[in-house]
Nucleic acid binder design. Structure first.
Lengths: 320, 320
DNA sequence: CTGAAAGCGCTTACAG
DNA sequence: CTGAAAGCGCTTACAG
């Protein structure tokens, strides 16, 4: 027999409503009653049924999630943000539907849309605006609600850390595509270097793809062209994995000869990977909050979520 | 306003019970009524609420999902199978919990466990057996319920297709790790080649990592060592992506000079990637079915799910 | 074949 | 502070 709120109520000699109140800590409950109920719940190892909870609590709103086409749907980052988003919606008892590429024929109503940066973002946003559906972008875009990691600050942080470790010859692997976040990471990095006021600083930026292969090629080619950095900052962790692969192939020891720092926080991609980490759960939380606020209060807000630096074994003191 | 079963009932002028019956196709409903209800459902683009459905139908069973530690949690394949599994459970109104690495302290009851092939699979299975909890493995293992793609058949299929396209010099990129599925794919491929009875056949197998980087290195090194295959069969799509990268770097035209065929069906990883595709939704479906059967009938069954070949632009006629 | 009603486990105004 | 009741959206005996 599964134990339910009714059983708790019975054993605690109160109503189901009261039990519910102590579960949710909402309205006031007499301390004595509360303690008693808590005791019974604990004794029976009771966990409120999340499904029943959702059915009963859920907001009347449903959110559309509109993903881009193509490979990045399978990327590690997307994987994580997707799971965080679903979990967030479950906790907030908000329904969602995944939107197809073409939303014209979708009949199910959705009150707001969560989307990601992608190639045809302008068209997408225009389509939503036409239909007066609020949009929340995971990324940056003027005029609509956005939530993004602190790419600028993250770049800055990367530079500071590299400098603190004594690195003075940097290689920066960035994206050839014209992507907002990539540019911010790059700008932050440059700004961090300049801010140091150091004179004897060399920094080279090379542009390629944001994938493992992209990072591999950039690193290999730069090295073969004579670049000899001691610190390599990569715009994505996938690029960092590629760069590490190239360095291994080139026989360069990490971090003894060269340090590598990635961005995103996907340290599971490579043992010991050092990375500027996004707070993915916080971003998911914020994205859903902004969407609900947009629906209810018609508000537009832009949020930046802080990043942190995860030290790892790929980052070390510069060789002297 | 969200549209519910009540709205459908109203517009179709029947009771909610009847609508429910047509949704579930259970007891008999007059054909005329059925068509009418279906029409209304379609017109309003109605989708039954899975949460309400679950609350009302759910089996008394809850399934644990026990994932391995480490990088493959972020792999494209894992991403897809995970999503398929959750969707399947939602449809079957089965509850689940994600198990932590150490299941000893878990208090919530779970009646069966779904797990994936991983390093400490033996220990895990032993732990479950100790507690008399049925296990279903996505992969192969003697003595317990398993579901896996037809790796052997897939390898065979790959060989047949390559031969049919006229390829006679093959390179086979496989895994150095001792993994059941990798070996089956390899064995299938070899068997397919032998079965042809052709004399003028060359096939070289090289072993490395199952990642993009792994594929890249194997392809590059084999080529640099003088291998000149016209057909390259890769044990995973990620390896195929790497191989394609290496060929591009080597200035080899695909598929004019060399054809590349992957395995898994993750064609989104690379435009036009040809691949032996797993049927991930079917695997998820089967896994949940086996778990429920194991709980109820204590049955142990091993299932193999067929694969199909997805043609793409990386696979073509052998050069003459 | 079909409707009316009870039930899944929880929450939340509404009274008191 | 707390209880009784209605409701979330669906399913399923039970009658007819």
């Amino acid at each position: 027999m599964k134990i339910t709120i009714g059983e708790i109520a019975r054993q605690a000699a109160v109503s189901k409503g009261t039990v519910s109140r102590v579960i949710n800590g909402k309205s006031t409950v007499a301390e004595k009653t509360r303690l008693n109920v808590l005791e019974v719940m604990k004794r029976l190892d009771y966990v409120p049924d999340p499904v029943a909870r959702e059915l009963s609590m859920r907001s009347k709103h449903t959110l559309g999630i509109w993903v881009g086409a193509g490979a990045n749907r399978l990327s590690p980052y997307f994987n994580l943000i997707w799971r965080a988003l679903l979990q967030e919606m479950q906790m907030r008892a908000t329904q969602f539907i995944e939107l197809p590429l073409d939303i014209t024929p979708v009949r199910r109503r959705f009150d707001a849309v969560l989307l990601f940066h992608c190639a045809d973002i302008d068209n997408r946003l225009a389509a939503l605006a036409d239909r007066h559906i609020p949009a929340v972008l995971i990324g940056h875009y003027p005029g609509i609600s956005c939530v993004a990691p602190d790419d600028l600050g993250g770049g800055h942080l990367a530079a500071e850390r590299m400098l603190a470790l004594g690195h003075r010859r940097m290689l920066h692997l960035s994206l050839a595509d014209d992507l907002q976040w990539a540019k911010e990471r790059a700008n932050g990095f440059e700004a961090g270097l300049s801010a140091s006021g150091l004179k004897n600083l060399e920094s080279t930026t090379v542009l390629g793809e944001g994938s493992v292969l992209g990072g591999y090629r950039l690193m290999r080619d730069a090295w073969n062209l004579g670049q000899r950095p001691t610190g390599v900052f990569c715009a994505t962790d996938e690029m960092a994995v590629g760069a590490l692969g190239a360095l291994a192939d080139l026989g360069v020891a990490v971090p003894r000869d060269v340090s590598v720092l990635g961005f995103d926080g996907l340290t599971e991609l490579h043992p010991g990977l050092a990375s500027v980490a996004q707070d993915i759960p916080a971003i998911a939380h914020m994205a859903v909050s902004l969407a609900l606020a947009a629906i209810e209060k018609n508000s537009v807000r832009q949020k930046v979520v802080p990043v942190t630096l995860i030290e790892g074994t790929t980052l070390g003191q510069a060789p002297r």
